[in-house]
Structures are given as C-alpha cells and as structure tokens.
Design a protein around this nucleic acid. Structure first.
Lengths: 372, 372
DNA sequence: CCGCAAAATGTAACCGTTTACATTCGAGGG
DNA sequence: CCCTCGAATGTAAACGGTTACATTTTGCGG
C-alpha cells in the first residue's frame, strides 16, 4: 500500500486552507528552522535569506499556528481574568486596564465572569489550565484558600483579603478615613454609614475606616448609624429610605460605594429631603455617573484602570521569571473628589476652615474640586 | 551515543510538572488511545476499563493540555470578542451575555477592546487567528469591508451596518418610533433630539426614527431641534445647556442614549429647569443607573445581555456547521419603560388618553410602568 | 471445538511549531 | 592546498493530544 500516504497527503493539503511554516520554507527555498528563526528574530540569519523568507511569508499570508506554538514553547501568551458576577462600570474598567496593559506586551486576555461561589470559580480556573500563563482573580468575598491548590500557575489577587500570594488592593481604609476627615472638617458628627456586603473585603475595610473615625466622636450608639447594604443601587435606596424615616437624622450619609450612594440620593429625593442642604451624601469609587447625578456627588476616587494595569504588571513579572519573583502586595491609593453633594450641616460650626492635609499614608492624596 | 535519548527523557520528565495522557495510560495499563476515548466519551470502551482510566486520571490530577488538543482537532473552543473602546455598562453587559452563553457550551472568550480605528481592530483580529474559532465583532461605526478579508472564520457583527454576513442589531428605528409615539400621545410636538456619533449605526437609526416621526408634525425648521452629541454624559450635558439657553424651548428632549440623557438631566437641573414639569426628558437603552437619577428616567429598554446571548448562539451555529449555516440578520426588540421623567406639556392637550399599541413590528413591545 | 463478526484496544501518523544538535559553507592561517 | 573555525543552515525529535487503521478479544452459532 504505497499509495496510502499520498492519498493522505493530498487530503491534508486540501483541508489546510492556511499556509504553514513548511509552505513558507518551500517557497523561500530554505528549511523550516530558518523560517522560524527569521520570524522570531532570535538567531543569526543572513540578511538576504531573511528577506526571502519574509517575502515568502507575506505572499502566502502566513500566520503562525498559535496552538502549535504554545504546545512547543509551553506558553500561551494569554492571561485569564476571573471575576465575580460581571456588571457595572467597575468590572469593565478593570478589564479595560488589564486589556490595555496586556496588549502592549503582546498578551491576550481570557475573561470569565459571573462566579458567585468559590466552587464555580475553581472549576473555571481548572478549565483555564494550559490555556493561560497566569491568572488575575478578583474574589473580594471568598478566601484564597481554594486557589492555593492550583499547580504552579502565577496568580494575582485583586481586592482580596488573602495575604500569602501576589495581591493588589485598594487603600480602602485610608480612603474611608480621608473621607471622614473631610466630613468632620465640614462640621459633621452624626454620620451614617451604608455598609457593603458583609463578606466583601473592600466593604469591610471601608467600614473599618469609618468606625475608627467615629470612635473619637461624641455620637452614642454608633451601631445605630450603620445600615446594611450590598453595593447595589437598590440597597442604597432602601437604606436611604430608612434613614429618611428616622426621627433624629444624621447630618451626613457615607455610602460604602457610589452605586449605593446614588440609591441614597434617589431615596432622599423621593422623601423630599434636600441634598446637600438638609443632608450631605458621599460615596466611594468615583464611577463616571456620579458626576451627573443631582447634585454631583462628592466621593473617593479609585483609579480602577490603574488597578488593572498594576495587576498585569505584577503578573507579567511572575510569569517571566517565576523563580526570581517575590510575592508582593501592592496598594493603590484613593483621591478625594469634592463635588456638590455635601456642605456644612445647617446648625453647626465648621471645625476647621483651612484645607486639610492629604490623607495619612502615601497612598491617599487630596484633590479638591472637579478633576478634568 | 546511546545515552543521549535517556538524558533527554529524564530532563523532559522533570520539566513536565503535570501529568500527560501517557502517564495516565501507563498508570491505567492501557494505551493512550483508550484514555483519549474514555475522556472524550465518544467511542466504545468497556465499563471496567473506563473506570480504571478515570481513576488513574484522577489520582494523577490529569488535565488535558489544551494546546495539544487544539492543534490536533483544529479547534480552540474559544471565541473572540472585539469591541470598540470598552467602557460603560453597555459593553460589560454584552460581555456578560456572551460569557454566560459561551460557558454553558464549554466555550471560553477572548476579549479585546479599545479599538477606535479599523486598522487597529484588524490587527487584533489577525493576532486572534488560530486562537479562536469565531469572532463577535462590535463595530458600530466602521464598515465591515476590511473584515471581509478574514479567511474562513465565522464572524457575527453586533450593531453594525454591514449586511453581507451574520449580524445582530437592535431595533433602533422601531424603538425610536415607539418612543416618539409615546411623547406624541402625551401631547408633545416640539421635541428636541440629541444625536449620537455621526458614524454610529445605532445612532443613525435612532435619528432616522426620530426624523420620520417628526415629519408629520407642525414643527418647522426641524433641524433646529437636533443637537449633536457623542453618546457621552458630557456631550449630553453640553446639548442640554444649549437647549436650556434657548428662547423658545422644546417641551421634551429625546436623547439617543441614556448616558447623554443623564447629562441632559444634570444640565437642566443646573439651569433650574424642572423635569418633568417644565421639560420632559427621555433616553434609550435603560442602563441600570437611570432608575436612580432624579427623576427616574423614561427610556427604551434594550436587553443587552440578550444581544450577547443571541450573538453567541448565531456564532456557535456558524462554527459547528459552517457549510449548512445560512447567514442571518437578527434584530432584538426594545421595550418602553415609563418612569417619572416625562409628563404632558403644561399648556397642551393630550392627543390621546387611551394606551397606545405596541410599537409597529413584532420586535418592539410595550411595557408601561417599571419593570421589576 | 472452530470460525467469525463485533467489540475492545493498540499502534503510530499527524497537527504545526521550536530548538538541540548535525552539517555545510567559506574565509583565513599555516 | 589543506585544516580549522565560525557562521549559516538543515534535520529531526520533541510538545501532548486525536484518530484511522490494525490487531486482539469476546461472544456465539454451528
């Protein structure tokens, strides 16, 4: 059966609609090794040969087969991003930041979202094995523990409480303290707080910052000023409604994130409570929309895209040299953005009229007034 | 040199930290073919053997190497999503919709955003070749023409004007008509329109719907009622400010998307014009935030996640059977969501008090009042 | 007990690269 | 003119699966 091989060859060639490195080699009159060398630009090749190869590749519209390449070099030039339920501007900003940074380095990104429980997340991570060189995992409310089982794959955690690996977090505590300082300086003492999800790391830190700041004030029954929420507009609306219905209202409401603050604003409007005259409202994150609610909202800006950028940078370092890579925990700062949603309470004297200093720590800086 | 091969073998085995199909085969005492058969569940294997193989795989924590698999079967089980500059809730919703649908079918998604010009997009698409089995391309303002060059890769266009391939679009025209009908029935005749980007397909269709509806009215100098915008809050704010400054103001403003409508709302608030008493404002898209602005906004809902889902379904069909696949152009409907941002103009009589019918065509339906 | 089809399993080619090592080429020194 | 030594290039073995085809078992009627 000397004809069998030929039959196969022919069939294969027909199926292969795209040129392979062999076709390029044949066309250029060189070997596949040379083609590979030219195209990867690593080793010595005569200029003349190089030109011919490049010409052949172009004329055949040759594009290397990525699967074969990854198989051979054991790298996929792709990183995975695993997110909890993807929605809202926060996540899309993170993706955007990573995407930009990754593309600049020739990396692709594989995205998977909508994971509420660790089990499902782990499953997805499993299916990503071999497909990605590293992972950015955003799991603000699950422990990292299950991820530890992953074999030899660089992972960067976003906004997680895990401390054993690479991680990038927002300076939530510092930001919350800075916001409280701002409110205090305006003269507020009865400040309510709308909490985020109980198991969310960001939410917890913001709450911690709030509580720390409240400790020094004269307000009694502090817990009575805290309202539960889950980072959604709805929950903010609900909390705001309850606050509005109170007899002795606080003079300011600090919401653990902007989405809830928007909900608070809507509920106060519905209750006929004027903002900021009757009550000040502030948020956290500086999502784009808060600039356009009425009144424009004072908030702590978090540079989310920067978060993504830094995460990729860290991951890339871990990927390129796993041995030399030292685990790091970076923190991105926050910036106070003052808009129209707060003012000094009606019958209270301002504590201080001079501009307050930048928030404690290098990671928080101050920015009065609208930013571009 | 009989020892060379051995040296290699040993080195390889050390490097290979993860088990391969050969390891599983050895452990189970069968051939690799059998392991492959068991794991893919396609062909006949004795139950007993199957059990052993599965046990061996589990004990070795075997995970197939995707690169090898793609190389062999010429499929990557991955689809690519190419978007223009990724930001805002719209894009994250699209991704979410596709992600959910894709995961259910065992597909992964490779995302690339932030492409403003066709050239850059084409470049990205090129680097995705071989990495993905198909593409969802969202290019509302570039022609499909350059994408035609792509060799044999299924592509589904989102919100594009190209008509030659698979595509999914929003029923922008029908939605705009339905919204205008709503405004007319409230008694509005002088209705301003804030346009989207000039080359954006969605924006154009919405404008077309608006213009068609205005044709029948008594309003003269129709173009004077149209204001330019680019889908951003800023541009909406700017347009709103100019409208507010006019002598003879319109009684309603129809914004080509919600983001701009939010900007319009903010500008009217700043100008002291009450909404909806002095002026009605409506948008398009029903992004989550518009429920929480003051007043809550009336808008045309677009089920964006559904858009993503449908896009994936179409793509999957094209991928699984390219030959039998017939190019389709699907359209997703819109739904009127009435909230508090519009009412009958002050000194005008309502044209009709009876509830209007569903928008013309099966793709638009009517929904009065808040939806869940 | 034999023969034989069907079922189960094994063998090895192939997918398209990369790359260690082998080979060839050409120039300069002896 | 031969030898040596780099530089340039070629050869072929991986990478880890899938699968067509070959081979071995099984089950069963005769």
């Amino acid at each position: 059966m000397p004809s069998r091989p030929d039959v196969r060859k022919v069939r294969r060639r027909k199926i292969a609609a795209v040129a392979t490195i062999h076709d390029v080699a044949a066309r250029a009159g060189v070997s596949v090794a040379t083609v590979s060398r030219v195209l990867n630009g690593k080793e010595l090749v005569r200029e003349e040969t190089s030109r011919q190869v490049r010409a052949a590749a172009k004329s055949l519209r040759y594009v290397p087969n990525v699967a074969a390449r990854s198989l051979s070099i054991r790298r996929s030039q792709t990183i995975g991003i695993v997110l909890p339920d993807v929605h809202g501007e926060f996540f899309s900003e993170v993706i955007r930041g990573i995407d930009l940074a990754a593309r600049a380095e020739g990396y692709h990104i594989l995205v998977s979202g909508s994971h509420s429980d660790p089990g499902q997340m782990l499953e997805v991570v499993e299916t990503m094995r071999g497909r990605v060189d590293g992972l950015v995992v955003m799991a603000p409310d699950v422990t990292i523990a299950p991820l530890e089982e992953l074999p030899k794959m660089p992972v960067v955690l976003l906004n997680s409480s895990g401390v054993n690996g690479d991680a990038i977090t927002i300076d939530n505590y510092g930001g919350a303290r800075a916001m409280m300082r701002h409110l205090h300086e305006l003269g507020h003492t009865r400040i309510a707080f709308v909490c985020g999800p109980r198991h969310n790391a960001d939410a917890r830190e913001r709450l911690r910052g709030y509580r720390h700041a409240m400790r020094g004030t004269a307000a009694k029954s502090l817990r009575a000023l805290e309202w539960s929420g889950d980072f959604t507009e709805e929950s903010g609306f609900a909390a705001g409604s309850r606050i509005a219905a109170q007899a002795a209202r606080p003079t300011a409401v600090f919401s653990a994130n902007d989405s809830m603050a928007v909900g608070v604003l809507a509920s106060l409007a519905a209750a006929g409570i004027k903002v900021p005259e009757a009550m000040s409202v502030v948020g956290f994150d500086d999502i784009p929309i808060v600039r356009y609610v009425a009144p424009p909202m004072t908030t702590m800006r978090v540079d989310i895209a920067e978060l993504g950028r830094r995460a990729f940078a860290l991951l890339l370092d871990a990927i390129t040299d796993p041995a030399a890579h030292a685990c790091r925990h970076e923190r991105v700062g926050t910036t106070l953005v003052v808009r129209g949603s707060c003012m000094a309470p009606m019958n209270a004297t301002k504590v201080s009229t001079q501009p307050h200093r930048a928030a404690r720590g290098r990671s928080s800086s101050l920015n009065k007034g609208e930013v571009s």
